[in-house]
Amino acid sequence: MVDWQLVKEYFPDIAAKFPITLKMVIISISLGLLLGFIQAIIRINKVPVLNQLALVQISYIRCTPVITQLYVIYFGVPIILSNFGFDVGGINKEFYAILAYTLNQAVFLGENIRSSLQAVPKGQFDAGRSVGMTEAQTLLSIVTPQALYISLPMLGTFLVALFQGTALAYLVGVTDMMGKVKLLGAKTGHTLEGYIVCAIIFAVISIILEQVFRVLNNKLDFANKKAKTDDNTVLRAAGGNA
């Protein structure tokens, strides 16, 4: 039987670890977006050597389970670092988890960004250049906003998946919500109640995230946007020949 009283008692302790999950998600998705953008630019422009390296990294990340990637980083990186003379003892376990999730996200987000940028009609680049904007200006003010809109549904899916995916981080010793459940379980012998708390928190936050992305999607939808009517233009239009 589920001890609902225990669920209630566990809740504050487990929820207190939510910021750790949040931190892992925010850092991984931000760095992932940055690296992903770089990866996308490398892939689109087929930059020699870097493009090949990116392809290797993409197949590695795509073709291996996240938990394997997590362990490879967790056990592999300290060896590399200590070879270079770093003291790995002081490194926080969260570092390895964040590194693994960042590299994972970079690949998936990068491919998403690449396909979204390439989905923007070429004529938009042409138009940007034709009015005298530089490549960078065109990319920034014309192409990227349109690509962002195209990529948004996938971005939302990735974010929710990452959020849930961080539940694995306790396997490398991060005391996030899942890690806390394990500790509580070891102490009291009741684990199920803890996992129920986790399930509730993960579900609620995921639903909120999905809604946030739905709102964002509607906001950014320039194809169905309401016409802008600021006072001045309306006034002028009324005087013009409508």
Partner: peptide
């Protein structure tokens, strides 16, 4: 002038 605030799709 009356279409100043409209998007191309409109």
């Amino acid at each position: 002038p009356e279409k100043a605030g409209s998007y191309p799709s409109q």
